[in-house]
């Protein structure tokens, strides 16, 4: 997964897509996930990182992450790897 390179992300979780003018807010865990994608992590690496840090089982988080990335793709904020 690749985060839209132009996306502006604030620490507080405010996202601005300069190409479309759309803006969004995400909660702290959403902001953290986006930051991990921006570092170039794969989906599996993101799952590892979050499940290591927080008290959440892998299956539950995997499902939640799928929902979240689905929304990000809908708004063209995230693209599937080529």
């Amino acid at each position: 997964m690749k985060i839209n390179q132009n996306l502006a992300v604030s620490e507080s979780g405010f996202l601005f897509n300069p190409g479309t003018g759309e803006s969004f807010t995400v909660n702290p865990i959403g902001a953290e996930i986006i930051a991990l994608f921006r570092k170039g992590m794969t989906q599996d690496q993101v799952i590892d990182s979050i499940t290591d840090q927080y008290h959440v089982d892998r299956n539950t988080f995997e499902k939640d992450l799928q929902d979240f990335t689905g929304i990000l793709k809908t708004y063209s904020l995230l693209k599937q790897d080529d």
Binding site: N6, P18, G19, T20, G21, E22, S23
Partner: peptide
């Protein structure tokens, strides 16, 4: 270029944001 952020009932932009497209 600008995206209309808030549009009046007359279709006029009451707020907008500069974009890079």
């Amino acid at each position: 270029p600008m995206r209309k952020q808030y549009i009046t009932d007359k279709g006029k932009a009451w707020a907008g944001i500069s974009i890079d497209d």
